[in-house]
């Protein structure tokens, strides 16, 4: 990093932290501290919701995903707008009418204390671990690419987040706005520079055509397949259920719209998110597709994770890697010649020549991908702790190598902003659930508001330190990123099932709902362990099994009770 990068990076982060600390002053009551006094308007709610979902991994990994696999990941978000409408109709009015602090507080009024406690506990486990990973994952990637100390980076991000989050929800929501704008601004600047860095005779449309012919603009796949994670149907159904669960039952998101001054403001925030989310993810993936187009004319490294590459150079596998690199270079020369022919054919409008160049370039691309897989295997062999998943390193590797001074600092600030925004909501919601659903419910029921504000600050600090520790003990980032999604999907379906019962099945009571949740969790764990059903579908399984099991148990309990009653009557 050059001096100007450091200036941009540090100034951005310091200004955001100061702004958050200033916005979080005078938070005397628990309602003010945890729900910003329920005074938020819809633009802040909407941006806060979006900033919560957009973690650093969104900005690091999503462009890499488009580079490696194309844009089909965008389909994961297609169910989200439907979920926003359903939640606006069903959940928002209930949460506002009951004036709850957490989503789980509602479950006690609907079912009873055991369902509330089980669901809140599942949330604390899942969110506690995943918040740690949302700090650690970007820390490890940034530190590897820039050669920073991983522990200092992890602790540094953690401290910045604690500084803002401990000032309460108002500070979190207001800094979310700045963080999201900076993160998206950084991506826009990156896109403009990528397009300007293309060869002079290659326009944006040419680059899009090249990326499309090479299979990177595959936004919609109509083919239904339970084993592929991203197609239109898994996105609408599986992605929709994930969104319902995440926005309706996950306190990290529910807390964002509980801050609305009226139910209408909360609804508008959710609906705006529903309108913007798909285009926003499309844009981030498109940046990745354009990085791919750029690397059709400029040779990409065989492996983007430069630290892993450097480590391998010191081992017995160095010679084998050099051989792969030579193959990669030769393959690239042949491929770029075909891509050049493709561009000339596009300019000439010669469809036969386009088809022929595309077929050749695609074959060479497959060879490149197979060489990259061999390189990843060598990287793993050379050091079992190294990260062999290169997807997360593509975008940052490109930024550091090809973007001008100042912009690198801006992109890094964007990534840190995204890490801070997602994690701040995590800590904020963990503190609320710990204090409202556990401490205030079971330990200090009659304590004064001041006491609970202090308890919330201590809980925020505790979960912040816990997140830093999770990062310090985590090792493999590649598998961790996937693990965050998979691990969350173990719980999301179950939690969603409990809320579906609460909202739509009024006959089901506390005992049946608790057992339904336990059975659903067990079934999802079995499905995850013993079948190869893609993780997006676990949410549907968890929700469906939980609802059905609770209904069957409720029916058995009712018929058991009525037989006892009729038995007593016959005595």
């Amino acid at each position: 990093m050059r001096t100007i990068d450091w200036v941009v990076f540090i100034t951005t982060l310091v200004l955001i932290v100061i702004y958050g600390i200033w916005k979080g002053r005078k938070q005397k009551s628990l309602e003010n501290y945890l729900l910003a006094g329920r005074t938020m308007r819809w633009p802040t709610i909407a941006l806060s919701i979006m900033a919560t979902q957009a973690s650093a991994i969104t900005f690091l990994s999503t462009p890499g995903q488009a580079y490696v696999d194309g844009m089909r990941f965008v389909q994961f978000y297609l169910g989200l707008p439907i979920a926003m409408v359903l939640l606006s109709i069903v959940a928002v009015p209930i949460y506002h009418r009951l004036k709850v602090y957490t989503a789980y507080e509602y479950l006690e009024t609907r079912f009873g204390v055991s369902t509330r406690t089980i669901t809140a506990t599942l949330f604390l486990i899942q969110r506690g671990i995943s918040t740690g990973l949302t700090v650690y994952a970007p820390a490890v990637i940034v530190s590897l690419v820039l050669g920073w100390n991983i522990h200092l980076t992890n602790v540094g991000i953690g401290i910045l987040i604690i500084l803002i989050t401990i000032r309460g929800t108002k500070a979190v929501s207001h800094t979310h706005v700045q963080q999201l704008l900076i993160a998206m601004g950084g991506m826009l600047v990156a896109l403009i520079i990528i397009v300007r860095s293309l060869p002079h005779d290659v326009s944006l449309i040419d680059a899009m055509k090249v990326a499309g012919h090479m299979g990177r603009l595959n936004a919609i796949d109509l083919h239904f397949d339970l084993k592929t994670p991203y197609n239109l149907w898994s996105g609408l159904i599986g992605g929709g259920l994930v969104a319902l669960s995440y926005f309706g039952c996950d306190q990290a998101q529910v807390q964002r719209y509980l801050t609305g001054e009226t139910a209408e403001q909360s609804r508008l925030g959710l609906l705006f998110n529903g309108m913007i989310k798909v285009p926003m993810q499309f844009f981030i993936l498109f940046v990745g597709a354009m990085v791919f187009a750029f690397f059709q004319f400029v040779a990409p490294p065989l492996f983007f994770n430069s630290a892993a590459r450097a480590n391998l150079g010191k081992t017995q596998y160095a010679a084998q890697y050099d051989k792969l690199e030579a193959m990669h270079r030769a393959n690239f020369s042949a491929k770029t010649a075909e891509v050049r022919k493709m561009v000339d054919a596009i300019h000439a409008g010669d469809s036969a020549a386009i088809a022929s160049a595309t077929a050749n370039a695609r074959a060479l691309q497959q060879r490149e991908e197979s060489t990259r897989r061999e390189a990843a295997t060598l990287i793993k062999k050379s050091d079992t702790h190294s990260d062999d998943n290169d997807t997360n390193y593509v975008f940052l590797g490109f930024v550091v190598r090809y973007l001008p001074a100042g912009v690198v600092g801006l992109i890094l600030a964007s990534i840190f902003c995204a890490a801070m925004s997602a994690t701040a909501s995590g800590l904020n919601s963990l503190a609320s659930t710990t204090v409202v659903d556990v401490y205030r419910r079971f330990i200090a029921r009659d304590a004064h508001d001041d006491h609970h504000v202090l308890a919330s600050k201590m809980a925020t600090f505790f979960w912040g330190v816990f997140s830093i520790f999770v990062g310090e003990f985590a090792t493999h980032v590649g598998s961790l990123v996937e693990a965050v999604n998979r691990f969350g999907s173990l719980f999301y379906g179950t939690i969603l099932g409990v809320f579906v019962l609460a909202f739509f099945f009024t006959a089901v009571g506390d005992v049946a709902a608790s057992w339904g949740a336990a059975i659903s969790l067990a079934v999802v764990i079995l499905v995850a362990l013993f079948t190869n059903i893609a993780w997006l579908w676990w949410n549907a399984v968890g929700c469906g099994v939980g609802v059905m099991a609770a209904m069957v148990i409720q029916k058995m309990m009712v018929s058991g009770q009525s037989s006892v009653v009729s038995g007593q009557e016959s005595l």
Binding site: G212, G215, A219
Partner: peptide, 30 residues
């Protein structure tokens, strides 16, 4: 139709249009 119902309709219509546009985008650049 009140204001909220209009908003719900707009969000869902936008989703259908987005899917249609994404499909056309995929086809146009495939």
């Amino acid at each position: 139709m009140n204001r909220l119902h209009r908003l719900y309709t707009i969000v869902l219509v936008e989703l259908v249009l987005t899917i249609a546009l994404l499909y056309l985008f995929t086809r146009a650049f495939a």
